[in-house]
Design a protein around this nucleic acid. Structure first.
Length: 368
RNA sequence: GGAGGGGUACCCAAGCGGCCAAAGGGGGCAGACUGUAAAUCUGUUGGCAGACGCCUUCGCUGGUUCGAAUCCAGCCCUCUCCA
C-alpha cells in the first residue's frame, strides 16, 4: 500500500492549498487535527468525530507506550481498528510529554530516562523506541522523538536540545518503516532564529516526507511566536507538508496558514469544551455562565453540528451545572466542528486571496 | 416530666474574650486553558465605597466588659437518652 502523497495545488503568497493522501483516506490542507491522546478524542465517539468533518486525528506514543503498551495495540491490528477510527492517524513521538510530565531522571544523546506518571517505574525511551512503538501503533504519520524544552531557555540550553533533536532525527530515520507509515522530522530551536534555521536546513537534508515545527506557543510572546514561525517555515521544503505542532487559537491557525503551514493540532476545542467554553465565529462563549440559563438558541446559530441541531444553550448549561458527561460530548462535537468549519473558511479565503481580511475579522473576535 | 448535646454566612462546619466580616469544605459567580497526567487550575462569594473605611451579621432578648460569635441570665427551636 502506498504511504503518503502530498500535492500542493494552489499557492497564494506563502499560503497554500493541498491534498494529502494517506492509507486511511485523503483530506484537504491546511488541515486541523483533533487530539486523541489516549486513543480517544475525549468524550466523543469516533463516528461523531468523523461527522465533524475531521479526517485525521492525533494520538500519542508516550501515553500509549505506557498504557496499554505497544503489544496490545499491535495485537489489535493497530490503532485504527483498536479505537474504531476509520480516518488517518498521526502519532506524536512523546517528546512533548517527556518534558511536560516532569519526572525526568536524565536525558542524554543515547536516550531519555524518566519515571512513568502512571506507576512511577523507570522508563528508558530512545528515539528508536519511539519509532518502534509508533510502528506497532500503525499510525499513517509518525513523528521523530525530539527534545522539547521549557520556555524561556538560554541559547546554550536551546542549542543542546536542538542538536540532540537533529541527532535523534538521524537515528529515527534509520529505522525501517512499513511502506504505510511516513516519518516527519521536528524543528526545534526555541526563539533563536539561527538555531531554527540550522535545524530546518539539517532536517531538510534528511529528506523526510514532512516537517513539523515544535516548541512554539509554549509561553513566548505572540510576536516571538509569529516571527519564529514565519522565519522557520521559509527554510522548509515547499513540496512537503509542514505541521505546526500544538497550535492553536483561531488567530494562530490563520497566522500559521499565512506562514505556509499545512497541518495543525490542538487540544483547545476538546479541553475547552469540557470546561464549558464554546467557540463561535463571533468569539468564545462560556456556556456555564448564568446568562444562558434560559437561552434556548443553539450554541451557534447556523452551525450544522450535531449539538447545534438538537440542543439549546440552556440545556447544555444545565448539563454542565449537573455535571453530566453529555455536556462534554455535545460541546466537544460543536467545538471540533467549529474548528473544521473555521478551516473550511480559511481554505476558501486562501483560494479567493482574502485571507488577510479574514485574519482581521478573526483578530476582532479572538484577540491576542 | 428528667439528663445531656446543639443552634455560626446560601448549605455543611471550625472558632469559644480583642489579631473575626468570621478557618475549611460544598454550592454559587467569574476567569484561565495552544504536540491533553486536565471531569483540571485560579479568583471571588454580607452590604456600600475607587481606596482609607463605614454599616449590618454567629437563634432571640437582656446583661457583664474598654471590647462578646466567644462569659452570664431568661426565652425560643432542635437532637439523643431516660421516664
Amino acid at each position: 500500500m502506498a504511504g503518503l502523497a502530498y500535492d500542493v495545488f494552489l499557492e497564494q503568497g506563502n499560503s497554500r492549498l493541498g491534498k494529502m493522501k494517506t492509507p486511511h483516506g485523503e483530506f484537504n490542507t491546511p488541515v486541523f487535527m483533533p487530539v486523541g491522546t489516549q486513543a480517544t478524542v475525549k468524550s466523543v465517539l469516533p463516528s461523531d468525530v468523523w461527522d465533524t468533518g475531521s479526517r485525521i486525528i492525533l494520538s500519542n506514543a508516550y501515553h500509549l507506550f505506557i498504557r496499554p503498551g505497544p503489544d496490545t495495540i499491535r495485537a489489535a491490528g493497530g490503532l485504527h481498528p483498536f479505537m474504531n477510527w476509520p480516518g488517518a492517524v498521526l502519532t506524536d513521538s512523546g517528546g512533548f510529554q517527556i518534558m511536560s510530565l516532569g519526572h525526568m531522571v536524565s536525558i542524554s544523546d543515547e536516550q531519555a530516562v524518566f519515571r512513568s506518571h502512571v506507576d512511577g517505574s523507570l522508563i528508558r525511551f530512545s528515539p528508536e523506541d519511539s519509532i518502534r512503538a509508533q510502528i506497532a501503533f500503525g499510525a499513517d504519520i509518525i513523528m521523530c522523538l525530539d527534545q522539547c524544552i521549557k520556555h524561556p531557555a538560554s541559547f546554550d540550553v536551546a542549542k543542546e536540545a536542538m542538536d540532540r533533536t537533529i541527532l535523534w532525527a538521524c537515528r529515527a530515520r534509520e529505522v525501517d518503516l512499513p511502506s504505510t507509515q511516513s516519518l516527519f522530522g521536528i524543528v526545534q530551536g526555541s526563539v533563536y532564529p539561527e538555531l531554527r534555521r540550522h535545524c530546518a536546513i539539517e532536517l531538510s537534508s534528511m529528506d523526510f516526507p514532512g516537517y513539523a515545527i515544535g516548541g512554539l506557543s509554549v509561553g513566548e510572546s505572540k510576536k516571538e511566536f509569529y516571527d519564529i514561525l514565519h522565519y522557520t517555515t521559509q527554510y522548509l521544503p515547499e513540496n512537503k507538508p509542514r505541521y505546526l505542532m500544538g497550535v492553536g487559537h483561531p488567530l494562530d491557525l490563520v497566522e500559521g496558514v499565512m506562514a505556509g503551514i499545512d497541518m495543525f493540532d490542538c487540544v483547545l476545542p476538546t479541553r475547552n469544551a469540557r470546561h464549558g467554553r464554546a467557540f463561535t465565529f463571533r468569539g468564545p462563549v462560556n456556556l456555564k455562565n448564568a446568562s444562558f440559563s434560559q437561552d434556548y438558541l443553539p450554541i451557534e446559530e447556523g452551525c450544522d453540528c450535531k449539538a447545534c441541531r438538537g440542543f439549546s444553550r440552556s440545556y447544555i448549561r444545565h448539563l454542565f451545572a449537573a455535571r453530566e458527561s453529555l455536556s462534554w460530548t455535545l460541546l466537544s462535537i460543536h467545538n471540533i466542528r467549529f474548528f473544521q468549519r473555521f478551516m473550511d473558511r480559511v481554505r476558501d479565503c486562501v483560494a479567493r486571496g482574502t485571507l488577510a481580511s479574514f485574519r482581521a475579522e478573526t483578530a476582532e473576535f479572538y484577540p491576542v
